[in-house]
Amino acid sequence: MIDLTKLPLSITSFSDFCERNKIYIDKTDLVAKLAQFDAPIFLSRPRRFGKSTLVSTFHELFSNGL
């Protein structure tokens, strides 16, 4: 049985994941391709499915070069 108290359910910022020594995994196979686009992208994912965290990840990647 998985201990849900150890899952970072309230973290939505990629920098918070790094600061708290947590791991963020987006298993979407198209994330690397999204990072290569040079045009606006509409993200359509179900509610509570990591849209804010994904956008935060891209922000950290492109602003800080992580």
Rank of each mutant, 00 (worst) to 15 (best):
G50P: 00
A39R: 15
L30G: 05
L30S: 11
L43I: 15
L54P: 04
F14E: 00
V31Q: 07
F17L: 02
I23T: 13
A35Y: 06
T53H: 13
I41A: 10
L30R: 08
F42E: 02
G50S: 05
I25Q: 12
I11L: 15
L43N: 04
V55D: 02
F17H: 02
F42L: 12
L34P: 02
Q36T: 08
N21Y: 08
R47V: 06
K33G: 00
R45I: 03
R45S: 06
F14T: 04
I11Y: 11
L30T: 09
I25H: 12
L30Q: 10
L43A: 11
I23G: 01
K27R: 10
F14I: 01
L34I: 11
I41N: 07
S15K: 04
P46L: 14
D16W: 03
S56G: 08
D16P: 03
E19R: 14
K33P: 01
S15W: 02
L34D: 05
P46K: 14
L54M: 09
F42V: 13
S52P: 01
F49N: 13
F42N: 05
T12N: 13
Y24Q: 01
K33Y: 04
D29I: 13
R48M: 09
S13P: 02
L30V: 11
A35G: 14
F42Y: 12
V55T: 14
C18R: 12
F37Y: 08
L43R: 07
T53Q: 10
S15I: 08
S44G: 09
